[in-house]
Amino acid sequence: MAHAEALNSFESGVARPRQSAPPAIEVRDLVKTYRGGVRALDGLSFSVHAGTIFGLVGPNGAGKSTTVKILTTLSRADSGIAKVASLDVMQEPARVRLAIGCVGQKSGIDSASTGRENLTLQGRVYGLRGKELREGVAGLLERFGLAQAGDRVTRTYSGGMQRKLDVAMGLIHRPQVLFLDEPTTGLDPEARADMWREITRLANEEGITILLTTHYLEEADRLAQRLAVVDRGRVVAEGTPEDLKRGLRGDTIHMELAQSEDAERSRGVLSGLAELREIAGEGRQLHARADRGAETVPQALAALESAGIKVASITVSRPSLDDVYLRHAGRAFREADEAGAERKTT
């Protein structure tokens, strides 16, 4: 079913989520506790329509990679249901493996082999042989701009080239579902933009379902048709990036005070303005929400000035996924990210 769907959209050149088709990925109440009692997943649920890009977004340690490991049969959940291409990952791991491509957080490239050798071995493992394999390998090298470097040992590749080869290896057997675990972490901006183009093309032109994890909110915003915000092993918000942002009424106003001593007093002053709500901040930084940000700025400035408080800068922004995270997880994204990274390394 899902395969036919993928082929169809490949031929027609467009892939649209079809509500009637079974979801390409279905996750319900997934729980996973690691030895030592760390509860990585705590009742995680979401589903992904065939042929779409779905983003799992969250800070370090939120449970994104654990989810990918379970869905790709590397790891097992303690309880819950996980289906990929309508196959239960716990019951039929062998069939799931044939249906998926996986680009893990760690590269997965044999650094002592060439790009072509890496791809060829990967294809062989999936049962490709002879001409089909040779052409598949050559085609992918070409497509990812690695044709020239194909016969060089991958140790000599740049980070961006290695990542491209990783994705190519995930595609050699034409999977229905592709998992990309933090595909652009550690890439320079140019390589990241490259990768974004490639990911979009895969979903749009080939109808591959893509599950992408990222802790760059901007990345999910750019790529994913739908996303789930994950925090501490649970989905705290799900929807299209637009839906999620629309849920936050109005704009965010960021202010930087000239002196941090004024922080408390300025909060008092600002809370006197009816237009502003959710006033918060740290040190010289203050932020608040307003229905019409641009119109509220002069009022806020005037109020602060008459109280003798100097403002160094003030900006208004449309709601971002940062704000979505802040609202649903109850803490700032960067803060959670750093806490998670620390937990991981200790």
């Binding site: 062998a94 893990g104 997965g108 650094s111 049962g127 290896m169």
Partner: peptide, 12 residues
Amino acid sequence: DLGVMDRFLVSP
């Protein structure tokens, strides 16, 4: 360390 093992383990 390279992640090569994990890649093989999610393949057939």
